[in-house]
Computed example of a mutant assay.
Amino acid sequence: MLDTPLGRWLRGLKGQPGRPTVLVKELSERDRRRILRHFLALNPNDRLLRFGSMIPDDAIAAYVAKLDFKRDIVFGVVNRVFQLVGVGHLAFAKADDGKPTTKERVAELGVSVSASARGKGVGSRLFDRAAIHCRNSDVDTLYMQCLSSNQTMMHIARKAGMQIKREFGEADAYLQIPPPSPGSVMAEALEEQWAVIDYNFKANARAAAKWFSK
């Protein structure tokens, strides 16, 4: 099977039709506080790798407060105790009039993974979900900018076949996105369906645990 986001998604199926091993859900306004807690819990080195600088708490709070869930897409992975352990922010380039470009659409992806979730494929799954969403949204190019020392993202970029340009300790990576297909549309729809079920189950389980602990 081809080493593409769709191919890796299909290889990730485990036991049940359409259910990948790491579920990635599109987040919404209700998740803003969880996103903030996720970023604030990153250690200084992880903050450096995610944001490109040693960003303080107040700057992270301002960044999260400005997230526009109607304009951009934020993906998340929750663990079994309903904590966000992975976040991918997919921001779409805008034309001068503030609307998405029509001739060529570019989306930039930023990914962060909690230390507790390292080595479980969370970063790769966030990338794959973002790539399929771009494909189904007629985005031409997926772009990532990170420090050259971010070995995890560099590995993901090389594995995806992205064109990488390194300069002054930073790396720009580009992936040309093919047009959507019935398979890519189905893959994204199935994952979101499974992820919503998983998300709601974990949310209800956490609420029940809090209630019984009173």
Rank of each mutant, 00 (worst) to 15 (best):
L142Y: 02
R129T: 14
V106W: 04
A107Y: 08
E108Q: 10
A115D: 03
P180I: 14
L109E: 00
L126F: 06
E191M: 06
A117E: 06
I132D: 01
H133A: 05
A187K: 05
G98L: 15
R166M: 13
G123M: 09
A187Q: 04
Q145F: 11
D198F: 12
M144L: 10
E170V: 01
P182T: 04
P178C: 14
A187P: 11
A195C: 12
L142D: 00
K159D: 08
F168E: 12
R129V: 15
E188W: 11
G121P: 02
A117N: 10
W194P: 04
L142K: 04
A187S: 10
A107R: 06
Q193K: 12
V111C: 08
L190R: 15
D140P: 09
P182R: 11
D138K: 09
I177Y: 00
S184C: 04
S116I: 09
E188Y: 09
D140H: 12
R125Q: 07
S112P: 10
A130N: 01
M154Y: 14
Y174L: 05
M153G: 01
Q193S: 13
V185G: 06
T102K: 05
F127P: 00
I132P: 01
V139T: 11
I156E: 04
E192L: 03
E108G: 12
D140Y: 07
L147Q: 08
A171H: 05
A157H: 01
R166G: 13
R158E: 14
S114M: 02
R118F: 15
C134L: 12
I156V: 13
E192T: 00
A173T: 04
A130T: 01
